[in-house]
Amino acid sequence: MTAGIGIPICIQCGTHSNPCRCKVIGPTVGFLAFAAAAVVEWPIGAVVYIFRHMKGRRIMAHPATVVYPRVTRAIPI
Rank of each mutant, 00 (worst) to 15 (best):
A36T: 03
F34V: 00
K55E: 10
G30Y: 00
T72D: 06
Q12P: 11
L32P: 03
Y49R: 14
C13A: 13
F51N: 08
A35D: 03
T28I: 07
P76T: 04
F51R: 05
C13D: 15
V67P: 01
A61H: 02
I7E: 03
I5P: 00
W42H: 11
I44E: 11
K55R: 12
Q12Y: 13
L32W: 10
T65V: 04
V39L: 11
I5Q: 00
F31W: 05
I44W: 02
P69V: 07
P27V: 07
P19Q: 06
I77N: 12
G56E: 03
V24I: 11
R58K: 07
V47I: 13
T15A: 08
S17G: 12
C10N: 07
G56F: 07
G30L: 01
V66G: 02
I9L: 07
P63M: 05
G26Q: 10
P43Y: 05
T2M: 00
V47Q: 10
R52P: 06
R58I: 07
A36I: 08
E41P: 04
P69K: 11
I7W: 04
C22N: 13
Y49V: 14
Y68F: 04
V39N: 05
C20L: 13
V40G: 14
C13V: 15
R21E: 15
V29F: 10
G30H: 02
A35E: 04
Y68Q: 04
G4W: 00
P63W: 02
M54H: 07
V24S: 06
P27S: 09
H62C: 01
P19S: 04
A35L: 08
C22M: 14
C10E: 14
Q12C: 15
T28W: 06
E41I: 11
I25L: 12
G26N: 03
T65M: 09
V24F: 12
N18T: 04
V40R: 08
G45A: 12
A46G: 14
I9E: 09
F31S: 00
P8C: 01
T72N: 05
I9Y: 10
M1P: 03
Y68I: 03
A46Y: 08
A38T: 02
Y49S: 14
V47F: 12
N18R: 11
A64N: 03
P76K: 09
R58Y: 01
M54Q: 08
G56L: 12
F51T: 09
F51V: 15
C10K: 13
T65R: 05
Y68K: 02
A38W: 01
P76M: 01
A33E: 04
I5W: 00
G56D: 04
R57N: 09
H53C: 08
G6E: 05
A46C: 15
R21V: 07
L32G: 00
G56N: 07
I25T: 10
I59L: 08
H62T: 04
P63D: 06
V40N: 09
G14R: 11
T2L: 00
H62N: 01
